[in-house]
Structure formats: C-alpha cells, structure tokens
Computed example of a mutant assay.
Amino acid sequence: MRLTTKGRFAVTAMIDLALRETHGPVTLAGISQRQKISLSYLEQLFGKLRRFNIVESTRGPGGGYTLARQSTEISVADIIVAVDEPLDATQCGGKANCHNDEENHGRCMTHDLWSNLNSKMVEYLSSVTLRDLVLQQEGRGIVIQDMRQKKMKVESAKATKTGPAVTAKKEVAPKAPLINSVFNLARHS
C-alpha cells in the first residue's frame, strides 16, 4: 500500500473536524491553520469527501463543514477511498498482469503476497472508525475549546471591564459679557 499525503491529510483533517463539530460547522481555514495543510488542497479533498456523503457543507457566516454521518459509521478506509487513494501494494494495480508470461498466468511470484497484504490493510482500515481516532486524541488529553463561546466571553469581559457606555453631558459655560480687551475685563470685575 502506498498511502500518500492525500490519504494522510484527509484522515488528519477529518479527525480535526470530528473533534470540533459539536461546536458547529468547522471551517477549512481553521483546519488549514491548525494542521498546516494548504487551504486549496483541503478544498479539493473536502469536495471529494462531500461527494461520498462523508461531510456536509454549510454556506454563509458561521458556515463550514460537519460530518454527514455519525463518526462511528465512517471508517478510515471510507475516507481514503473517497479521496481516490489506492489501497494496493501489488505492482500491477491488482489486475494480476504483473508479467506477461504464460507460465505464471501473467502474475509475478509475489503477487499473492501483496494481494493478501491489500486485503489485510483494507480489513484493518475498515475496522478503525473516525470515532476511534477521536477517542484516541481525547485520551491523549486534547481539549477543544469552543471558539464561539470564547468570543462571547471576551466580548462580555470587555463590556464588564469598561462598563456600559456613558454619554458625556456637554457642559455649557455660563454666558459672560463679551470682553475684547484687558481693560474691559477690569471694568467688569
């Protein structure tokens, strides 16, 4: 199996999404920033994940992505297959035409070995759910803070700190006689 960055990035991004989705839709910009994955690359991956009904998108302010199914129903194999990642260790791509000789029926001597490895990999990755990976992260002590609540707390703290806005009364000076010179000032005193 040749698992490239496409599959690894897709699984990483999906863990990030699953960890945060309870707080509402998760933006690709946020995932990009946290996981150091190009935003345009994430857009391509999430387009494929959406077509496979793994994620749903919400447009507009406060929009982003959420899981289209429960995290217990999404396997790592589902994610990897959705982003077109081949799960194949054979030289021939699973076609059994490694060599064009009649004696081995077109297969190389190690074809069955790699084909069996493919089966085991698919079996294993199908058995690991997105929920398993989220629980693993939470077990490592990963704590996700709801950024919306944090923003509301910051705004509330600012309002408390400065107090309610007070409109300053403009003080008006009492009318005084017009004084054009120092001499007139002396007369009015």
Rank of each mutant, 00 (worst) to 15 (best):
L19W: 07
A18Y: 03
P174S: 07
I79Q: 13
D16K: 04
M109S: 10
E171W: 06
I15H: 07
Y41E: 15
S32L: 11
Y124I: 09
G64E: 04
K170Y: 03
L125A: 06
T22M: 02
L67D: 01
K48D: 14
S126G: 15
P174L: 02
S38W: 02
M1I: 05
D78K: 05
P25T: 11
S32I: 07
L135V: 01
A68E: 05
I54D: 04
V11A: 11
S156C: 08
P61R: 15
L49H: 12
S127I: 13
I80P: 02
D16W: 05
G47A: 13
I37W: 04
K161S: 05
G139S: 14
T66D: 04
V55F: 04
F183S: 03
A18N: 04
V122K: 15
V182M: 08
C92A: 05
V134H: 06
S127N: 11
T22V: 03
G24M: 14
F183Q: 02
E21T: 06
K150V: 01
T5W: 13
Q35E: 15
I37A: 03
I144T: 13
Q137K: 15
G141T: 01
P25I: 13
L87F: 03
R69Q: 08
T5F: 13
K6F: 00
D16E: 08
M152N: 00
D16M: 05
T27S: 15
V143N: 09
R140H: 03
M121D: 01
A18I: 05
L45H: 15
Y65N: 02
I80V: 11
E103S: 06
M147L: 10
G163E: 04
V122C: 03
L87E: 02
R20M: 10
K36Q: 15
D16I: 01
A176T: 09
H99L: 13
C92K: 10
L185S: 12
V81G: 08
R59D: 04
N180S: 03
V166E: 00
D84H: 14
M147F: 02
R69Y: 02
N97K: 08
E155T: 01
T129M: 06
F183W: 00
I79P: 12
Q44V: 15
A157L: 06
T5E: 13
N116M: 14
E85Q: 13
C98S: 02
R2M: 05
Q136L: 14
A157E: 04
H111I: 02
D132F: 01
I142H: 08
A176F: 09
K95E: 04
Q70Y: 10
V55W: 02
Q145Y: 09
A168G: 00
T129K: 07
E73T: 00
L185E: 09
T5V: 10
N180C: 07
K169I: 03
Y124M: 12
N97H: 01
A176E: 11
K175N: 07
N116R: 14
A186R: 14
P177R: 07
S38T: 03
A77K: 09
K120M: 09
F52L: 00
G7Y: 10
H23M: 11
R8Q: 10
I15S: 00
I54S: 09
L87P: 06
E43V: 14
Q33Y: 14
L67W: 07
Q149F: 12
R2S: 10
K95L: 04
